[in-house]
Design a protein around this nucleic acid. Structure first.
Length: 682
DNA sequence: GTGAACGTAACA
DNA sequence: TGTTACGTTCAC
């Protein structure tokens, strides 16, 4: 490529223009788009394309063949126009290409030849996210300069020059809002870093506790004990994304600088740290006021650190973060009931009236008329789609916790991970505030396989990015006011999602499933979804309607679902026909509280030639008042049936159940676990 | 605002 | 040389 990596704006532009003139006299699309600078005019170097790390979990995957981009590929029968990587193979840590060299010495990265962590850092190539220049930190002869290492992306920092000049990926001069808020938060960390330096290196635990205490802004300059208590309190309010604060604005780390960057300065060399910008006390006050807004900005910061161009959208819903905090304690921790006092009565009641596992207790079908109306309009999440939120790698470095004296803690990361595995998500959020290393470790997706946002009254952009960063296998968004756009955004970024719970959401939101492909989904919970009837079910189960080239796929989007929860829906046999055809792996089906379900429905599901006849193992027909004793005869056809829930079916008699058990006992022994709840004796 | 399209960097 | 896919532009 003829582009100069060290060239200034003019040089680059002119060259780019030349190319444009030569290669495409009449450009239809972008010309040298892959290397053309973003609108950031302060950039001084050509932007270097990054490439796969080839090591991360995503890189090691094979193409799914199912996603939008795979379908475009020629190998999968598409036209090959989009030229994008499989959604499942989006590299978590894209690296600089092998051809990248230092703009000063023209040499490649030399960290591999060194042992010492800090030396490694000084001799590795670092790309500035602002000016795009790639240098060895060691080659910068700037004294008393400070670079800010991007924790999220390998070999990425804000170089001392840009950092010193106060430049940003965003044009601060044009955005007083950001310039007012983001730097303040950074400064908070900078203050600590400065303190660290002044007082020598601090034990990471102590340092971290202070940090989180201040960050949560519970108190100003509280002592250790106070700040610990405060942090615990604030942790209860910790939102999903909140703990990413420290990750996002963590000034240090980077692949080779982990720990090393915490060591003392070495002469005039630039080092990765942040500069003091505000007195801490003043900052704390400011931070207290600005914290809510800053949460959203943190995500912008995060995205910015990922070197994605993004627009800045001021957070207009100032009270949002409070709600976010309140709901944060829901995260996967069913043990917590702390939030119930703070929730409105309606939501509180519903939480208790509609457990996810329906256990009919006599309440009737009319109850759902008090379906929780989302208390607020869905929050804006427009900008979320511009962000690339990269999930943290499995087993993020370092291997051991760096200690005050420069040594490493005796326990290895995996031992810590086992310990973290015993903690609730709330407690993990506390841990994430302790120190940078714990922050990284606690974000490991193995600790977040199940994220529960059930009944969060407001799903915010920050929460969405927090979810993406944790890549859960199971996600419960039941009774939330998530919007279609948000859900679509989520689904497309959770390729490994197996369990999705959307009960009580609106059809408007759930309809996102119609346009998104989630081939790995095994459990889908759409019970009590408002407006979900036969017509919507057809949309949900029918193949994609996109007929553009490469988009042809006649298979059901939910063909691999094994567990389908449809309680409380006004669906009829029309839907059941579709289900029996389109879901060959369906094993568990919940049709409780479905008033239109009758014997004929059961007949359909168990008819000869249907896959459900053999695949069904559990069926819930409780409180289906049109189901009669006759249905039990149909269930005798099912080869794999293990549980039939007919509780509170008015037209089903205990006698019929006992008769069923007696007949089946010849081949498959059943018992009555409860009244009209038939269960196979294993 | 969104996503398709595409030039071309990166690499085998 | 062929393939993959990053980063950008622009039509809708």
């Amino acid at each position: 490529m003829a582009l100069s990596m060290s060239g200034d704006d003019e040089e680059y532009e002119s060259e780019s223009e030349q190319q444009r003139a030569v290669n495409r006299p009449k450009p239809k699309m972008g010309s040298t788009s892959a290397v053309k600078l973003p609108s950031n005019r302060s950039a001084s170097g050509a932007r270097r394309r990054r490439t796969r790390c080839r090591k991360c979990e995503a890189c090691l995957r094979t193409e799914c063949g199912e996603c939008h981009f795979c379908k475009d590929m020629k190998k999968f029968g598409g036209p090959g126009r989009m030229k994008q990587s499989c959604i499942m193979r989006q590299c978590i840590a894209p690296v600089l290409p092998h051809t990248a060299v230092c703009v000063v010495c023209k040499e490649a990265g030399k960290e591999d030849t060194l042992e010492d962590e800090e030396e490694k850092f000084n001799f590795m190539l670092m790309e500035c996210s602002i000016c795009n220049e790639i240098v060895h930190p060691n080659c910068l002869k700037v004294s008393d300069a400070s670079g800010v290492v991007n924790d999220e992306l390998p070999n990425c920092w804000e170089c001392p020059k840009c950092n010193h000049a106060g430049k940003s990926g965003k044009d601060k001069s044009d955005d007083s809002y950001i310039s007012k808020l983001l730097p303040q938060v950074k400064t908070e960390k900078e203050e600590e870093d400065d303190d660290d330096e002044e007082g020598g290196r601090e034990h990471p635990f102590r340092s971290g506790v202070d940090r989180k205490g201040r960050f949560g802004e519970a108190e100003e300059d509280g002592d250790y004990r106070d700040s610990r208590n405060d942090s615990l309190n604030s942790s209860i309010k910790t939102p999903l994304g909140d703990s990413d604060h420290s990750l996002c604005s963590s000034p240090q780390a980077g692949p080779s600088s982990e720990g090393g960057s915490e060591t003392q300065e070495r002469g005039p060399r630039p080092k990765a740290r942040r500069k003091r910008r505000l007195p801490n006390r003043e900052l704390s006050r400011e931070l207290s006021k600005a914290l809510n807004q800053e949460i959203q900005k943190t995500e912008d910061c995060l995205a910015n650190e990922n070197r994605q161009p993004l627009k800045v959208e001021p957070e207009t819903e100032n009270e949002e973060p409070k709600k976010l905090f309140r709901n944060g304690n829901e995260l996967g921790d069913q043990r917590s009931h702390l939030k119930t006092k703070e929730m409105n009565g309606n939501t509180w009641d519903l939480r208790h009236f509609y457990p996810s596992q329906i256990t009919p207790l006599g309440f009737n079908r009319s109850t759902p008329t008090t379906r929780p109306v989302p208390p607020r309009s869905p929050p804006k999440c427009v900008q979320m789609e511009r962000h690339v939120i990269r999930p943290p790698p499995i087993s993020p470095p370092p291997d051991r916790l760096p200690l005050k004296d420069g040594k490493a803690h005796i326990l290895q990361r995996e031992v810590w991970m086992k310990i973290f595995g015993y903690l609730s998500h709330q407690e993990l959020c506390v841990c994430m505030r302790i120190c940078k290393t714990w922050n990284r470790w606690c974000c490991d997706k193995r600790l977040w396989t199940n994220i529960d946002l059930n009944r969060c009254t407001s799903i915010t952009p920050l929460m969405l990015s927090g979810i993406i960063r944790r890549q859960p296998v199971s996600l419960d968004l039941s009774w939330t006011n998530i919007s279609k756009k948000q859900l679509s955004w989520l689904i497309n970024r959770l390729p490994g999602l197996r369990v999705l719970k959307l009960s009580g959401c609106s059809w408007a939101a759930v309809s996102a499933l119609c346009t998104s492909s989630c081939p790995l989904l095994r459990t889908l919970d759409v019970q009590w979804v408002e407006g979900l009837k036969d017509a919507q079910m057809r949309d949900l189960l029918s193949p994609p309607t996109d007929n553009r080239p490469g988009q042809l796929d006649n298979r059901c989007k939910l063909r691999n679902v094994e567990d389908l929860r449809l309680a409380g829906l006004d669906i009829t046999d029309t839907s059941l026909r579709l289900i029996s055809r389109q879901m060959p792996l369906l094993s568990r089906l919940d049709l409780s509280y479905c008033n239109h379900i009758n014997d004929q429905s059961v007949n359909l599901l168990t008819a000869a030639g249907t896959t459900t006849r053999d695949s069904l193992t559990e069926i819930n027909l409780s409180v289906c008042n049109r189901v009669t004793d006759h249905s039990l005869n149909y269930f005798k056809r099912c080869g794999s049936i293990c549980q039939i829930d007919l509780r509170f079916c008015k037209q089903v008699t205990k006698t019929a159940c006992e008769h069923f058990i007696a007949e089946m006992s010849v081949s498959v022994p059943f018992r009555l676990k409860e009244d009209k709840l038939l269960q196979k004796i294993s």
